[in-house]
Design a protein around this nucleic acid. Structure first.
Lengths: 348, 348
DNA sequence: ATCCTCCGTGTAATCGATTCCACGAGGAGG
DNA sequence: CCTCCTCGTGGAATCGATTACACGGAGGAT
């Protein structure tokens, strides 16, 4: 059952293990004849190098860890996919850890990944920063935050800035005549959770609209919380005219709640969401959303991380999000907005 | 930068590395005093064992490989999630490889995973079986097929049988008065691609209905193919009254195509899909679908694989799928069918 | 012809754990 | 009191690669 190792190849080719290793790693000082024989031996034996042994010796695994908040969230799924693609192109594998928005699970994955001596870590933190992760960052593990981040840590951040898009959204809603706007917020422990509320409040302020506390529902980025918060909104003596969900799953929950009451979107209440996903085109009604350049984010994050691994600085990147208007806020949109997403960079 | 190793712990605790190793692995013959000192040393030094070195020595990585056809497909996402959960409960990590329905990518991932000496492999084959995978199976790598499988290989299969649910679906459609039923098939190279067509044809036969070739569209489990095939159906001199998509993404594509023509579902054409996903509740209209017990499949697959790794046989499992009626085939359903999915086991 | 350089190669150390084997101390049994 | 086990422990081999170092031979310069 013991698989063939480099020694077997050496024997078959009639050379030493050192020569085999050199031939396989493209080391310059190997004679063409020897290289030839090694390759032939590898072929006939079907030899494959043991990555575990190699990693132990070279102290690099050519593996990246990706810890995300929730794989079932289409946004993160897409992010994970683009991360894996770019990593593969750069010769890395990716191990994904699903934190399910639970700090303890997040820590479990970080620990496991570190134990496996991954070369670098991509994290979208669930909370404000567990000691374990901060330790890792301080200990010099190459690390990059993606989507969400933790303030005060010297780690590059790759994310999307939704501020402008939120302003566009509020302008759109205001233009449609809506004045009572509510938001289903994400956890205050996450940067995205806070930022989206701030951006919303700020945009509202520009139109002289208030954001009363009763119109700020505390969600946790999961569908259930969207449902619960929306029910609360509907029970208010003066319910909002619009509900803005800070992520796509909470929007789904909101849709559930509205439907359960027998109300209609957008006639009875309008709905908008942060994060655009392909299903929003086909929901009833199609949902107006803020789209992040997810693929670009994933690729930029991997490049920044690989830079860090290579000893280079690894730049932070902030990409703009954009508003995609559909029918869920009223008044049919003439067509899908096809504007390509511009790319902007900055280093904080 | 060199992290602390077992030697440092041994020095700190004033014992040998052997004792440290034994203490950490719960070996019986370690004195309480020594164990105490080792644990204390581990604590003060913040020592974490190097999983790479351990794997090299013990020849096990406590890692499972999962190669799936398409992460962006919510069905596989959910599968991956349940696999990871069960694996974690059993002390394993999971490395996910996304094949994107491409045999070459699938091979790449299988090779990479094997190089990393994963303990076992969970595969949902994209094609009829690449040499690389068959080699792996023959070479004795613990392996389990999930969802799709390759005939003629001695590997346990964990999957769902949709035959009965497809019969229920056809009965439902027939009862609604539909007589011209078409299907968007999956790739013939996959078992699920073939089976769903067979089951559909068989169920149609029971009602004396034909399944003409013109009503069998060849898709590839991706949204685009669903769109393309549906357009073909609509161009037919006598278009079908119902389109049954063999997976959820092709159903999405079909919805796109129908919408682009300005037609309505189900008034102009009815739609049903294999694989139920949460968004189908909120699409316009809600989509009638066949739901697989995805979570159970994932968990059963992991258990079978871990059995194999442990030298036990590892049983094949087939679980029934069930029909979930919604509005996309006509006539509003009174309510969501809440029947719990029964569990049945068999060993082929 | 002599010496110096490369060049290709092999031997052996190394990475950080686990584990076989040997050994000494102490207790039980004769 | 001697022998034999058992128990806790440490030394050293081992897993499968990479790589520093040494070495012999060929070729060029003087």
């Amino acid at each position: 059952m013991a698989s063939i190792g480099i020694k077997d190849v050496a024997a078959e080719a009639g050379v030493s293990v050192a020569t085999v290793s050199r031939a396989l790693n493209g080391h310059p000082s190997v004679s063409p004849a020897a290289r030839e024989r090694v390759l032939a031996a590898v072929e006939t034996l079907g030899y494959r190098p043991n990555a575990v042994a190699r990693s132990l010796r070279t102290d690099q695994t050519r593996t990246l860890g990706l810890v995300i908040s929730d794989v079932m969230n289409p946004y993160f799924t897409e992010l994970a996919r683009s991360v894996e693609e770019e990593a593969r192109a750069l010769g890395y594998s990716v191990i994904i850890g699903n934190a399910d928005e639970r700090p303890d699970l997040q820590d479990h994955h970080v620990t496991t990944l570190l134990d496996r001596r991954i070369d670098g870590l991509l994290v979208s933190p669930t909370d404000g920063g567990s000691p374990r992760m901060l330790d890792a960052a301080r200990a010099g593990t190459p690390m990059v935050f993606v989507d969400r981040w933790i303030p005060g840590v010297d780690v590059p951040v790759v994310r999307s800035d939704g501020r402008a898009a939120v302003r566009d959204l509020v302008a759109h809603l205001y233009g449609l005549g809506h004045r009572r706007l509510a938001i289903i917020a994400g956890p205050a422990a996450t940067t995205t959770g806070r930022e989206r509320v701030d951006a919303f409040r700020e945009a509202l302020g520009a139109y002289g609209l208030p954001l009363p506390d009763a119109y700020i529902g505390q969600g946790d980025f999961q569908a259930d919380s969207g449902r619960r918060v929306t029910e609360g909104f509907l029970d208010l003596p003066e319910p909002p005219e619009v509900v803005f969900a800070a992520d796509n799953l909470m929007a789904l929950g909101a849709l559930d709640a509205v439907r359960a009451r027998g109300l209609r979107v957008p006639e009875d209440i309008a709905l908008a969401a942060f994060d655009d996903i392909r299903w929003f085109v086909h929901t009833d009604p199609p949902v107006t959303a803020i789209a992040q350049p997810t693929g670009d984010l994933g690729r930029a994050a991997v490049r920044a991380l690989v830079d860090r691994i290579g000893g280079r600085p690894g730049e932070s990147v902030t990409l703009p999000a954009r508003l995609v208007v559909r029918r869920s806020c009223g008044e049919a949109a003439p067509q899908e907005t096809p504007s390509p997403s511009p790319v902007r960079r900055s280093t904080p």
